[in-house]
């Protein structure tokens, strides 16, 4: 950077192929991602500001967006708590089946969402293995918003575990010893020394799980019941509007969802910038 004169776009290098590699990258990126996404936003703009606003504030849309966001928030919170406990158990303790369970944490990344959706529905339906146990207690999971929560917890679980795990593995044990030798009990060491260090990773995992959950479709629609105003998620509403050939309205809901997702992404970047600033990495 030192020799950069402000207008120099690329530093000289003896490696060939910059033009070809970057040219191909930018072309492919534009054709597959940037132009189509711009098309979506432009299409929603054909409604005009008032039309756009009317579409996204229509009561059914608001209900769907609110459900998607709140259920995702709740599921990500559950994942943040249990994901941290799971990461802790996997890193700190030795117990039978630990490596197997560790490997299975990535299952939600590998298992197609439609498969997860019908499997969870089969489990939590009133005649399913878990649903059958809950039915006598008067708890209905499948075909209710509770079912949406179960699906979103499933798909979001790996994010927190996999962001917390490496930080915990590299955690400096001497900090814990220092804390203990200064008279802190184990609880104080965990909650006042270790958790603050883990917090950026937990928050990053939380935000990633949240972003994934807000847009999730496949695993949710089977178990949700899909009742308008009750258990209809925002991505499903887009599909419904599309099937009614309301392209512009569908893109308006889509644009609103994109804004939420990018807001979350921005949040992740802020956490990471804060982390770098605080720990000087």
């Amino acid at each position: 950077m030192a020799e950069g004169r402000g207008l120099v776009l690329k530093r000289p290098s003896s490696i060939p192929g910059f033009g070809l590699a970057l040219g191909f990258t930018l072309t492919y990126l534009s054709l597959i991602v940037l132009i189509p996404l711009t098309g979506l936003v432009l299409k929603s703009a054909t409604l005009g500001l008032a039309g756009f606003w009317d579409t996204v504030t229509e009561s059914r849309t608001v209900a769907a967006l609110r459900l998607s966001f709140l259920a995702s928030l709740f599921a990500a919170t559950v994942n943040a708590v249990f994901g941290t406990i799971i990461a802790w158990a996997l890193v700190r303790y030795r117990f039978p089946s630990r490596r197997l369970l560790d490997a299975f944490v990535d299952l939600p990344f590998a298992l197609p969402t439609a498969v997860a959706g019908i499997a969870l529905t089969a489990l939590y339906a009133p005649n399913g293995w878990i649903g059958g146990l809950l039915a006598p207690l008067g708890i209905k999971v499948a075909y209710t918003p509770l079912g949406i929560l179960v699906a979103l917890i499933f798909i979001g679980l790996p994010f927190v575990v996999r962001t917390v795990q490496p930080v915990l593995e590299e955690f400096d044990r001497e900090l814990e010893e220092a804390s203990a030798s200064l008279g802190a009990n184990r609880g104080q060491t965990v909650f006042r020394v270790m958790l603050p260090t883990l917090m950026p990773a937990i928050l990053t995992g939380f935000a990633l799980a949240l972003a994934r959950a807000v847009g999730e479709y496949g695993s949710v629609i089977f178990i949700a019941g899909n009742m308008p105003f009750v258990s209809e998620i925002a991505p499903l509403l887009i599909v419904i509007k599309l099937e009614q050939f309301q392209y512009a309205q569908a893109t308006a809901v889509g644009t609103a969802m994109l804004m939420i997702s990018f807001g979350l992404l921005f949040f992740v970047h802020l956490i990471q910038a804060w982390q770098r600033w605080r720990f000087g990495q």
Partner: peptide, 17 residues
């Protein structure tokens, strides 16, 4: 970017085009 876009929107953008 595509990781933070809902799958439904990932399909929708091509329908719009």
């Amino acid at each position: 970017l595509p990781f933070s876009v809902s799958p439904v929107i990932s399909g929708l953008i091509y329908v719009v085009l």
